[in-house]
Every structure is written in structure tokens, then in C-alpha cells.
């Protein structure tokens, strides 16, 4: 294992210490229990957005804490859901009196831990709603699984709901908007290489030089299909076609197209994928109104990409364009 770390057991804490040092102007980090919160307290009457998940997906979620996005984020151990006490303390710290909206990726552990935290916050008289993301079309048989995984759409969800909360939307409105976004976006990912969880010290699965894994999640877990390696254009088609046919997206619709890097793929390759993904969208009669290209929801050093398409209208485009000022996403400020 070749990693820029000091000791596997210190990875999460030391990364948070680094974040605190780098972004002291806008973030406050609590170390017992771990959570990241906006330094400027949530405005009175603004709903607090709280998310969280295992570490190893940086910049998600801590890098999205700030004006126009999240109010707090709870980092778990690498690829492990955070615990209810973290979510409870983060919710209390972020609450501005208008309630807490939890943004939860659909994984068994995340859902159970956030549920427990929501109960604990409600016991304190704080109103809590939760929005789930489950946009991964690679999970084909959601009847006999834990359901579809929350992946790339989570980034767009946090940006859009963050903008709506900043504009003063109430808890019920945000919950409804979140559910609409959940129903309007789909994603799929692939990997060229596995990744190594620091405390395990070896790759989570093996891939030969001439193989790739299609339908990958974001936790180093194997995907659905292992196939011979293909060129970028073919990979873009392998991901885009299932994404577009699943919702389905219809000719004439407008989308936000997000090409994400898994952590170990350079931007130059992501743009090659985006080039073809946008071409495929156009071929389906879709208008790509906005785009995002970069590594925003990662799986440690895994090489690979995912594509996310979100059907949008003028309301969502307005929220997308609204100012955002976080360590990882910043425009309009």
C-alpha cells in the first residue's frame, strides 16, 4: 500500500485537522464527535441542511459545507456510515430554529443511523425531515436488494437544496423539492482500478490490466459486470444509455449533465468522457443546460468515472446558478 498517510487509524482525524487549518475562515470542525459545520451560524429561520457518510468520498460531504450548500456534514470512518451521536450533535449545532433536513445516501447503515439521529433530534423538539438519494441504475433488481445506491445525484441534490434553503424555503418545501430531484436524476459508474481502504492495506478487489468493472458503487465494492477494457467513447455509451433509458429522459427535455471522477482519473480523461456523454445526450434530443465535470464524489484513489443526468426546469436551473461558497464548489460569489 502506497499512501500519503501517517497511520491508518489517524486518517480521518488528521484530514479533518487539515481541513480545519485550510478553511478556518469558513468551517468549524468538532472532533468529539466528528462533524464539520459552517462557521457563520445558520441564519435564524433558515432550515439547516445536514448530510454525512463514510469518509473516502472527498470532497463530499465536508467540502460542500458553506454558503449555498450544506450547514453541517458528518464524516464516518473510511467507507463506514457515521454514527447517530455525530448526526445528532451536528443537527443541534446547525439548527437555526427552522428545523433540520437530512440528506441521506441510500445505504443500509446510513439510513439506519440517520433514522436514529432524527428520532433523537425530534425528542429535543427539533423538526426533522430526510431526503434520500438512490440514483444508481446499476442496481437492477431493487426489489431483492437494499435498493438503489445513492451516488452522483447527491452532489447536485446538496447544491440545489442548499440554494433553495438559502432563499428561505421551509422544511416541507425542501423535502418536496428533494423528493422531486430524487425522482428526476439517474447515475451509473465504472472503475478501471480498485481502491485500498487504509486500515485494510490491500485493494478491495482485483482487476486485471485488460479488465474494467461496470456498475461500480463508491465503496470499493465490486460492480455488476466485469468486462474487457474499452475506449472512452464506448465507456461513455455504456454508462449514458442505461442512465437515459431508465428514467426515461425524453427528447426535448433539459438536463444537468455531471461527469464525475472516482478519485484516480485525471480531468483530461473526464473531459474525453464528457465530450461523448454530451454527444449521446444530444442524440437523444436532450438539451444539456448546465454541466459539472470533476471529482466530487470519489472512492479514494479508484480510477474511473460516473455520469449523472438530472432533468431540470427553470426553477432547478435558477437554483443551480445561485451563489455557492464552499471549499469544493464555488461560483457566483
Amino acid at each position: 500500500m502506497k499512501k500519503l498517510i501517517n497511520a491508518p487509524e489517524d486518517v480521518v482525524r488528521e484530514a479533518l485537522e487539515g481541513m480545519q487549518a485550510a478553511h478556518a475562515d469558513r468551517l468549524r470542525i468538532c472532533f468529539d464527535p466528528f462533524y464539520v459545520v459552517r462557521k457563520d451560524a445558520t441564519a435564524k429561520g433558515k432550515v439547516a441542511l445536514v448530510s454525512g457518510g463514510g469518509s473516502g468520498h472527498e470532497p463530499m460531504h465536508g467540502g460542500f459545507v458553506g454558503y449555498g450548500m450544506l450547514d453541517a456534514a458528518c464524516p464516518g470512518h473510511v467507507f463506514t456510515s457515521p454514527t447517530p451521536d455525530q448526526m445528532y450533535e451536528a443537527g443541534k449545532a446547525a439548527n437555526g430554529g427552522a428545523g433540520v433536513l437530512q440528506i441521506v445516501k441510500n445505504y443500509t447503515g446510513d439510513v439506519m443511523n440517520f433514522d436514529m439521529a432524527a428520532d433523537m433530534l425530534r425528542d429535543e423538539g427539533i423538526a426533522v425531515e430526510s431526503v434520500l438519494t438512490d440514483d444508481d441504475v446499476a442496481v437492477e433488481d431493487s426489489l431483492y436488494t437494499a435498493g438503489r445506491r445513492g451516488v452522483g445525484l447527491t452532489v447536485l441534490m446538496e447544491k440545489l437544496l442548499g440554494a433553495a434553503a438559502e432563499k428561505g424555503m421551509d422544511l416541507a418545501g425542501l423535502k418536496a423539492l428533494g423528493d422531486r430531484i430524487r425522482a428526476s436524476g439517474r447515475s451509473m459508474g465504472m472503475a478501471l482500478t480498485p481502491c485500498t481502504v487504509p486500515h485494510l492495506g490491500k485493494p478491495s478487489f482485483e482487476l486485471a490490466e485488460n479488465e474494467m468493472e461496470v456498475g461500480i458503487g463508491i465503496h470499493g465494492e465490486p460492480g455488476r459486470h466485469r468486462v474487457p477494457i474499452a475506449k472512452a467513447d464506448e465507456v461513455a455509451a455504456m454508462l449514458m444509455e442505461p442512465v437515459l433509458s431508465d428514467l426515461p429522459f425524453k427528447a426535448g427535455e433539459s438536463i444537468i449533465l455531471f461527469v464525475n471522477g472516482m478519485g484516480g482519473t485525471p480531468l483530461i480523461e473526464l473531459y474525453i468522457v464528457y465530450r461523448k456523454a454530451a454527444e449521446i445526450a444530444a442524440k437523444h434530443g436532450l438539451t444539456v443546460s448546465r454541466s459539472l465535470v470533476g471529482s466530487y464524489i470519489t472512492s479514494l484513489e479508484m480510477a474511473g468515472t460516473s455520469v449523472t443526468a438530472l432533468r431540470c426546469d427553470d426553477t432547478l436551473l435558477g437554483l443551480w446558478d445561485a451563489p455557492v461558497n464552499t471549499p469544493a464548489l464555488r461560483w457566483g460569489v
Binding site: 464527535p33 463514510g54 464516518g76 470512518h77 463506514t80 456510515s81 457515521p82 454514527t83 447517530p84 451521536d85 445505504y107 443500509t108 447503515g109 439506519m112 443511523n113 433514522d115 436514529m116
Partner: peptide, 12 residues
């Protein structure tokens, strides 16, 4: 266990 395990095993 609830505050130290995480994942699904923590709540379970």
C-alpha cells in the same frame, strides 16, 4: 456500540 461502530452493524 451505537456511537463507535458505524455502518449497519452499529445500529443493529
Amino acid at each position: 456500540l451505537l456511537s463507535s461502530v458505524g455502518g449497519a452493524s452499529g445500529p443493529l
